[in-house]
Nucleic acid binder design. Sequence first.
DNA 1: CCTTACGATAAGCTCCGCTTATGTCAGTAC
DNA 2: GTACTGACATAAGCGGAGCTTATCGTAAGG
Lengths: 314, 314
Amino acid sequence: MSVRDLGIRHFAALCAVVDEGTFAKAGAALGFSQSAISQQIGAIERAIGAPVFDRLGGARRVTLTPAGRILVDHAELVLRQLAEADDELERLAAGTEGTIVVGTFQSVSVKVLPEAIGRIRRQRPGVEIRLVENDEQNDLVEALRSGSLDVSFVVEPIRDDAIATIRLCDDPFVALCPIDDRAVQPHPGSRRDGRRDVLPVAALNGGALIGQPDQFCGQAVDRQLRSLGTDTQYVFRSADNGAVQAMVRAGMGRAVMPFLAINPDDPDVIVADLDPPLQPRRIALAYLAGTTLAPATRAFIAAAIDVADNLSHA
Amino acid sequence: MSVRDLGIRHFAALCAVVDEGTFAKAGAALGFSQSAISQQIGAIERAIGAPVFDRLGGARRVTLTPAGRILVDHAELVLRQLAEADDELERLAAGTEGTIVVGTFQSVSVKVLPEAIGRIRRQRPGVEIRLVENDEQNDLVEALRSGSLDVSFVVEPIRDDAIATIRLCDDPFVALCPIDDRAVQPHPGSRRDGRRDVLPVAALNGGALIGQPDQFCGQAVDRQLRSLGTDTQYVFRSADNGAVQAMVRAGMGRAVMPFLAINPDDPDVIVADLDPPLQPRRIALAYLAGTTLAPATRAFIAAAIDVADNLSHA
DNA sequence: CCTTACGATAAGCTCCGCTTATGTCAGTAC
DNA sequence: GTACTGACATAAGCGGAGCTTATCGTAAGG
């Protein structure tokens, strides 16, 4: 028999008796009868094999024995610990507090993520968001599996069926062309309506290409271009989107990039739709399938969906 | 419903499941069936109103939800706390550890106490003894009542019946006389047998007396001497026993002192029994009546009794 | 002396919580 | 595809833990 066979109620009773001075008052404070307290204290004493109170008899308060003093000291800590747990659980349930660890990659970090984070910070100031940026998607997925990420931005498809995804938006591939590119055809209709110019895919054939390294979505671009019969000749590759765009600006060649990864307001390059268009990159949020997400995490996901929707319609 | 309605067993089950990975193994580790663990976890989830594990289904391990993570973190602390309590209770019961706070006063501090402390330190190196010296007995008794002392040396009688006492020894009053005192009569028989010379009480009449302040046992001395028809004329009083003895050594007068308070090996004063002898001072140990004493405290009391016995017979 | 304020104890009843046995589900092997 | 395996859930039954009310013993105080 040991202290582990007792219930929290026993410790609460013990502390209440110490606070109130008598069994009856302790019982009243806890909503029990005097007898219940007497029996609870008795159970404690049986469990530890020693009295915890000296009953002085008559109308006198009980006093702690040395063993009782030790037990009360620990019981108070235990109760405090549990109260804290209750608090934390409540805050978790309310979604007003907690830490979300979000996996991201470069292009998403620039446009979607900051806005989503901003919303959470405004709505739920107590929620802390930690970011893990890694352009190697496998690493993000692995981090999800190991639990070190709560949720992560990814590019679909994800093979791993331990991972569930929520689609956010399609990110179209666009061509980045030097400002004097003759192959670019003005968009049929007004330039003012926000539609982009068009670059026939055939124009890429044999031309100089700048792009992202193979392991990023550069791979998908190559595959698609090749299947459209276009021979790709890379003159430069960089994981830094800004660097790619700067190369185009310098007239070194054209680039085919996901729209979210580029700066569309750059006046020194032409951003053109491809004709025919490539299959867009599907941006999604991923998390461990079958797991319960914290309310704060769900709120983040909702915010990201909303931000992505707005972004798509613009 | 709250976490306070749960038992320690529930927390143990929770931690076991986290450690073992499955309900069945956790049950085996704790000596329960798989079903019991399932029901215990179910009880936890009912108590906090949220799942603590995600059951992925099939032959896969359960994984913690955010709420489960919070609860486990606190549960581990709680269990550690309780294990510590168990340890401390065991050490208390064994009497090998703990702190005893002992009240003392000057004369006892010199002869009885050091020996008793030495024994405890040898027998129980883990026990710490703290001393509170106070020559005002009321203060010691008050400290006992308030619980700031575990046990205290006192001089009987103690009026307060909330205080229990254990008699240690009788401390006789002896006369301290200057080396050339003519009133001292050699002890009838050999001086070598350790018996002391004798001073008739009548010799004190009208002579110069040195003694302790009124509030110490000086009061008892005065009362007894007066009742024997002796007129006491104090020329000096000091709470410092060494000072009293030095005054006698300087020939300033005689003193009547408790034997334990003097240095009997001083060659420059005569230590004499009084004739008739005064009622001796009864030295006792006092503690709060009706309270359970820690084993270490009981050991100290036993040691003190033993030391006092040896001292009496010597 | 009687009252008051305590705690202990007894009797009874409820409900918690264990066990065994069975159900259900998802992978896995052949 | 079918059977098997490993994992959790659920049902039924039973024993005991624990609460309540009621009563008793004891010491302090008017």
